[in-house]
Design a protein around this nucleic acid. Structure first.
Lengths: 174, 174
DNA sequence: AGGGTTGGTTCGTTGAATGAACTGACTAGG
DNA sequence: CCTAGTCAGTTCATTCAACGAACCAACCCT
């Protein structure tokens, strides 16, 4: 399972985008960043991704200014990976893709819902709030677990935290 | 360059979606289907994709009911690949990704614009029409070439046709 | 000094993408 | 009828990325 990088000569912004976020694992890393995952070890445990691939993707995303690396303690030196504005704007891609998959391949009951934090209403397929009638920025979205439970629930700390309580996107998970 | 297929155990619709449309080349094939590309040979010439990979992706997309295979002549037998409703709904993923890339990595002048066919207004980043104020289905979108021209323009028939005149999405290119 | 945690890097193996060659069904032209 | 050409693939050897286990380095705590 590999996803290549170059779609040169396509003269197309979509191809350019896919060279960056179309690589295997990349969009799941960004999804986790929306969930508030920030540390290498947490991405690793939540994604079951090979360590070398994770390091490579994080470096690529930082270089593309989708993530920024931020030193949050000095001793021992520890960095966290945060979404930049450019990264946050990927919500308009990630949510519709999630929603498309949920509509077409999901069970009747979803494993997760995304709700407008101001009113608790589930987002529509375009990511807007049907009650308030407008766009909802990801910072105003809360991820709720259930109603359905996964057949084989994951036991890594990220999955556990997300199952335990609703979580506002972009806020740190721990 | 390879993109793997399985993200098992993720308990996430996004991962499920990426197993299908996250494979290398797949989203570019779907993009071409929106442009009205329908035949194996045209996908091949427009994408510079290895023949075996194209055949594999088309079969996968047909099996997932994103594309449908339609016999359009009997002698010699020829099939075309058309977007299903499920495939058409991917517009809500493809356009925002194109738009994100255009905003963040594009030049001042784009190579292409997408306009609401009813009023000629360029779509906003969410894919809505700022003039009419509502959602625009891909069948009501026209792809316009320019204002900028590509540095090294492609000469395959699909690229030429798309440069020559505005083209309504989902309509056959030839 | 020893053991644990975190965040990587290294490297041999596996598997997918690549691209050139080949195939088979059919048509068109001479 | 024979030959050339088109279209839509399949086959196969090579290349390259993903995988995953092992290793490493910095730092902490006791």
């Amino acid at each position: 399972m590999a996803l290549g990088k170059n779609y040169e000569g396509q003269n197309c912004s979509l191809a350019r985008a896919l060279e960056l976020v179309g690589e295997r694992w990349t969009l799941l890393i960004v999804r986790d960043a929306f969930y508030g995952v920030r540390r290498y070890g947490d991405f690793l445990a939540h994604l079951d991704i090979p360590r070398a691939v994770l390091a490579d993707r994080l470096a690529t995303l930082v270089e593309a200014n989708v993530l920024q690396r931020h030193r949050y303690q000095d001793s021992p030196p520890r960095d966290e990976y945060l979404l930049t504005d450019r990264g946050v704007e990927l919500w308009s891609v990630i949510y519709p893709l999630w929603s498309w998959s949920e509509r077409h391949f999901g069970e009747e009951e979803p494993l997760r819902t995304f709700r407008h934090v101001a009113c608790g209403t589930e987002l529509d397929p375009a990511g807007r709030c049907p009650a308030c009638g407008g766009e909802v920025s990801p910072g105003d979205v809360e991820a709720h677990s259930g109603p359905r439970l996964p057949a084989r629930p994951r036991r890594d700390p990220v999955s556990v935290a997300l199952r335990q309580r609703p979580h506002r996107l972009l806020q740190p998970l721990f």
